[in-house]
């Protein structure tokens, strides 16, 4: 755990340095392009986090092991935080490049709906007191919400499309140095995600243990 935190911290510092200082300035977009590194890194990790929610949810319903529920809940919380960061860093870039804070392009819109779905997941959890019921119902929502995302994306894409696509299949429009900065940032944020999930699940585990202990004291 200690080691993981140290490695993650080092990677974050390296990522910031590479992204904000070391990588060359974008010829057209200028300095503001640098927000691209943390933006893409958090977006990638938000998707990772929500995939983990799906895995945790399915595994919980199959095994009824609370550890899976704690993993799903922790991951959803961190995913919402990351998605919030994506939705905050995106407009900063958009304002400079497109001249508007917000535009209803498919990727933005899907991300916004994604945010709503998982905020709903957290609100749902908060509205159920009984732990096993909370785990079971949240798991069902975690699965349905995830299945829904691609359909949302298709419908939004059909609705309209103007977002720049940097990564197209088979072709990468990036300077090698920029690519290095991006990859280091993605790795750093993935480590950050791992650290946060580890901390958050441990917190959940400990508070469940405290509740069990209090119960034992009461019935003894």
């Amino acid at each position: 755990m200690r080691i993981l935190i140290r490695v993650a911290a080092a990677a974050m510092i390296a990522g910031l340095y590479l992204g904000l200082v070391w990588a060359p300035e974008d010829a057209i977009l200028g300095q503001v392009q640098r927000i691209f590194y943390p933006h893409v890194a958090t977006a990638w990790n938000a998707y990772l986090a929500f995939t983990v929610v799906l895995v945790g949810s399915i595994a919980y319903l199959r095994t009824r092991n609370e550890a899976w529920d704690r993993l799903a809940a922790s991951s959803a919380e961190i995913g919402v935080v990351f998605t919030t960061l994506v939705l905050l860093t995106g407009p900063i870039w958009a304002r400079a490049v497109w001249g508007v804070w917000w535009t209803w392009d498919p990727r933005l819109t899907t991300t916004l709906i994604l945010w709503f779905i998982y905020v709903g997941y957290l609100v749902l959890r908060a509205a159920i007191d009984q732990p096993d019921r909370r785990a079971r119902i949240a798991a069902v929502f975690g699965i349905i919400g995830f299945i829904d995302v691609p359909i949302v994306h298709f419908s939004v894409t059909w609705w309209r499309t103007i977002h720049p696509s940097v990564i197209r299949p088979g072709k990468l429009d990036l300077e090698p140095a920029m690519l290095v900065a991006l990859l280091v940032n993605v790795a750093a944020f993935t480590l950050l995600y791992a650290v946060l999930v580890a901390c958050r699940t441990r917190l959940e585990r400990v508070s469940a243990a405290v509740a069990a202990l209090r119960e034992r004291l009461r019935s003894a």
Binding site: I113, I117, G120, V123, L124, I144, D148, I151, V152, W158
Partner: peptide, 15 residues
């Protein structure tokens, strides 16, 4: 809670 949970999931139908 229902509208809060339903509408994000209902987006494809709305559109």
């Amino acid at each position: 809670l229902l509208p809060l949970l339903l509408f994000p999931v209902l987006v494809p139908v709305v559109i």
